[in-house]
Design a binder for these strands. Structure first.
Lengths: 339, 339
DNA sequence: ATGAAAGCGCTAACAT
DNA sequence: ATGTTAGCGCTTTCAT
């Protein structure tokens, strides 16, 4: 238990308020006194009592807006649960989390939602941003207005975020390659399914994957990249066409949504191959249980939601700015027995 | 932000203290009043303000003793780090963590340390207990005296713990089997290395492993179980002898310490086989990087230490008793690219 | 530029 | 059995 402000004040021969001003940068303090107190706090190893802070600043209301794609997707359900949990941890403060979740957003819709949140007076926003210049502009405008933004799950370039929270896609691609090699005996013909090549995350994942194949596994080849728009039916059609055209494929990797449709195609063709999928959806769980999928890679969706809100709360409440502006979640490898 | 005690008191027409007595079970309160207040709190959805609680009970000093095998073992270093982190989170309360860490403990030594801690007046103990009847007795005696105990990492039977925090060994064994099958194409001759068959955890892990082989993988056989006492040199000798005697072994699983010695033996013999090891020691990391080990299984040592203290703190400080008295950590699968 | 005082929600003596 | 009072360490007015 560290020293208190009161004690510092006594030692410095000033009042508690002055110490408060110095330590919280509220200004209006003699420069010399300021230095003296800062130094004192430093040498005495002062750390603020977080409980007292919480109690005292209870009336400081903060509003955080959230825009995540939540409906009917277990991944985002978990993100939402993480947000919930973080909000819970912030109870005791006057924080209000305004969630706007929609199944699938157009750029227009997302822009509109952002404007709405700004109007409602949020001081911070957690968002899974669409990779579009208009969103970049909009976010930068809001940031310029003093609204803090954290990007969750999806990263886009050109925005001055407080932080990005989500998967390190390159690394997850590399891990996928490593795993793919392990389960296929270092030799395979691979179909790599992504949502869209223009999606930053999916593309990076593919790059990471390729890098590792090139460096370590000369006998593993990508026979093709399939884009399924994260859609089960497109997935069904395209996978089925692809496998007909490339019957030597013996490993299919779903680095995207739509694994359900793709796997159904494989089963309907009675095609024999190994499968790796991403995200622990209900269907992927079942496929795992039935040994259809070898393993599923997860990206800690709960943690993503949790950390996004935590970072924002810490910033707004305690003025903490995260030292690195990227918070990477782990890529978890889930096998049947781990369910 | 929920309703406060003060408000409840006003609504019930009593004083704050009475509400406090009721809600914290301090007794000395009219049964009828008690019911009324309880009901009121319930219907109004009262939740205590944790920050205020922390502030007010600052002077309530608590002492927690820790006995873990810490010296020179990265696994327990991580456990210790978790303990540290939890203690940090409890700063703001007057908690004192007394750590007694020793390299390797005899039953006598552990008993003595327990007595010492009791004498120092700890209210709770986190311990990695030795599986011995004397320890069981000693712990139960302390528990009878009102000292709360949490078992970390190692579970032993017959003790009325507040909770066990650690790996689900059976499950980790099952996962190991699953993984082993994946990387060896569902067919292998396996050497399974444990510290000691009499160690509850290691034995359970072996059971889980066997179960899965039996159910799912008829072509995978355990050609032998090696006991290495978690010692690198015993490991070296025994593994080397075993492989000479069983030259068809093509997968070695180190479900114990001493993987370094065992792997060295394999390398010295220029023996070719796949390897799975437990715990991310410095050496295992290197072997992973060099593709000597296929993958390493981890058991979240940090989380183990963290949760042990958290459970104890929550109990002592807030009277929370965990609903389930087993907290299982995940079995993490780590591949080279994940390092 | 600095200080004094009230209050955040709760606990723990100390009354009654 | 119940109420009163004084803090816990901090923030926030409001004086000076």
């Amino acid at each position: 238990m560290s020293i208190t402000m009161q004690e510092l004040a006594y030692m410095a021969g000033v009042s508690r308020s002055t110490v408060d001003r110095v330590l919280n940068g509220r200004g209006r303090v003699n420069a010399e006194t300021e230095q003296r107190i800062k130094h004192l706090a430093e040498t005495m190893g002062y750390t603020p009592n977080i409980a007292a802070k919480a109690l005292a600043s209870k009336h400081k209301a903060i509003k955080i807006g959230c825009i995540i794609n939540a409906v009917g997707n277990i991944f985002f359900d978990e993100v939402a649960a993480g947000i919930e949990a973080a909000a819970e941890e912030l109870s005791g403060f006057d924080v209000q989390i305004i969630t706007r979740d929609v199944a699938k957003l157009s750029v227009d819709q997302q822009t509109r939602l952002l404007d709405q949140l700004a109007e409602e007076g949020v001081q911070a926003i957690a968002i899974t941003p669409i990779n579009d210049p208009r969103i970049v502009d909009k976010l930068n405008t809001l940031i310029a207005r003093g609204i803090q933004v954290v990007a969750v799950t999806a990263d886009i370039a050109g925005v001055n975020y407080l932080s990005y929270v989500g998967c390190n896609h390159i690394k997850s691609g590399r891990i996928t390659a490593n795993l793919a090699a392990m389960i296929s005996g270092w030799s395979a013909e691979i179909a790599f399914v992504v949502g869209s090549k223009t999606l930053l995350g999916h593309d990076q994942r593919l790059s990471g994957f390729k890098e590792v194949l090139k460096t370590y596994y000369p006998d593993m080849h990508i026979s093709g990249v399939i884009e399924n728009q994260d859609d089960d039916f497109i997935s069904y059609t395209k996978v089925s066409q692809f496998l007909t055209a490339h019957p030597d494929t013996n490993l299919v990797i779903f680095a995207a949504g739509g694994s359900h449709g793709g796997i159904r195609a494989i089963q309907d063709m009675s095609y024999h191959c190994k499968i790796i999928a991403f995200d622990l959806t209900e269907q992927n769980k079942q496929y795992l249980e039935q040994n259809v999928i070898s393993c599923v890679l997860c990206q800690e969706p709960f943690t993503q939601g949790f950390q996004a809100i935590k970072i924002l709360g810490d910033h707004l409440l305690f003025g903490k700015t995260p030292e690195k502006n990227r918070f990477y979640t782990k890529t978890e490898i889930v096998v049947r027995e781990a369910l």
